[in-house]
């Protein structure tokens, strides 16, 4: 019997984990990544919630996983053409053509483009940043304002581009609440004198130990939570940001100045997902993420025979779920190829 080949598109946590599982099951895996390095968004994460484990640790583990003779890694590569054959797909990658018996799409997510919410001032006022920008600051070990000063106050804005019909995203991105709480604690650790506020609509602590992290933020670190959505922000003369929201629990409009305003930009289906969807004629769900063949039993199968999906290209997902989801997909692919 000849060895069967699986093409995996996207070498983020989902793609990497699935590659390892499938290779260990005895398949030949071609892992295709458009960027120069593997790891996807995980590369940008300084620490993971809820246990504050360095993102690098998981990345190292995943890199170990894909060091397997059965895995061929193609970085700086993109699928340019797809042809459906009887029981397989012919893929054109970097002018080479390969044959894949099954395809796993792990194209992940893009961050919501926060400049689209113009009233929040991202891209206009330098002291309005996104959670991804802040993560980068943590990497650099220094959180400062545009003017180079230590912020006396930092405000996190939940649900930017998520649960927002105006942004076209009605879904919840799931991870932003707990990320905000994690980042709030990180700020307090780094800058104990800094006041930290979280502006939320609902706090959604869906995972194990998330609620505990929320409690820790209140109890141990004195992070303050204000229930209200930011309506608009403007810049003061000194570069600080004036925020307008309603303190809905007080029932009054609230104004607050902050030195740094962090927008918790949500997840949107990635540009690569869109491209792949066209190439493989895959269906999108109402939320524009990939549509599963069945939401319970065939979660990792797309509507297209032989094309599987895993990770944040299916729905917003944290790292833990992404890894578990990738392994589930591997099992499904194994079953598919054995029949």
């Amino acid at each position: 019997m000849t060895m069967k080949t699986i093409a995996i598109i996207g070498a983020g946590p989902a793609g990497m984990e699935a590659s390892g599982s499938l290779a260990r099951l005895g398949y030949h895996v071609v892992l295709i990544e458009k960027e120069a390095t593997v790891g996807g968004h995980l590369k940008n994460l300084f620490q993971l919630f809820p246990d504050r484990r360095p993102g690098k640790e998981i990345l190292t583990h995943l890199v170990q996983t894909i060091k397997h003779p059965g895995i061929q890694i193609k970085v700086n590569s993109e699928v340019s053409e797809v042809q459906k054959l009887d029981n397989s797909f012919a893929l054109k990658i970097n002018e080479e053509t390969m044959n894949a018996d099954a395809v796993l799409v792990t194209t992940g997510f893009d961050l919501y483009d926060a400049t689209e919410k113009e009233e929040y001032g991202y891209g206009i006022y330098p002291n309005v940043i996104t959670s991804a920008d802040l993560e980068q600051m943590f990497h650099n070990g220094k959180v400062v304002t545009e003017e180079g000063k230590t912020p006396k106050r930092v405000a996190f804005i939940h649900c930017v581009g998520s649960r927002d019909e105006k942004a076209g995203n009605n879904y919840c991105s799931k991870v932003c609440c707990v990320t905000a709480v994690k980042q709030a604690i990180e700020i307090k650790e780094l800058l104990p004198e800094t006041e930290v506020f979280c502006y939320y609509m609902d706090i959604r602590m869906f995972g194990p130990y998330y609620e505990e992290l929320y409690r820790e933020a209140q109890e141990k670190w004195g992070v303050m939570f204000i229930r209200g959505k930011l309506s608009e922000a403007s810049q003061n003369m000194d570069g600080s940001i004036l925020m307008k929201a309603e303190d809905t629990l007080a029932g009054k409009p609230l104004r607050m100045n902050t030195d740094l305003m962090v927008l918790m930009a949500g997840m949107v289906p990635s540009a690569s997902s869109k491209k792949v969807a066209q190439q493989f004629k895959m269906e999108e769900g109402q939320n524009r993420f990939f549509k599963s063949a069945d939401n319970h039993y065939r979660y990792n199968e797309s509507q297209q025979m032989g094309v599987f999906i895993a990770g944040a290209c299916v729905a917003p997902m944290n790292i833990t779920d992404t890894i578990a989801n990738a392994r589930a997909a591997a099992v499904k692919i194994d079953e598919y190829l054995k029949n």
């Binding site: 959505k229 309506s231 307008k244 929201a245 309603e246 303190d247 809905t248 609230l254």
Partner: peptide, 23 residues
């Protein structure tokens, strides 16, 4: 409505009077 209060926050009248449209 999920009572986020963005309406009240941006409201000119709501910032000057007890007119709180959400509430």
């Amino acid at each position: 409505c999920i009572a986020c209060g963005a309406c009240t926050a941006t409201c000119t009248s709501g910032n000057l009077t007890p007119f709180n449209i959400r509430q």
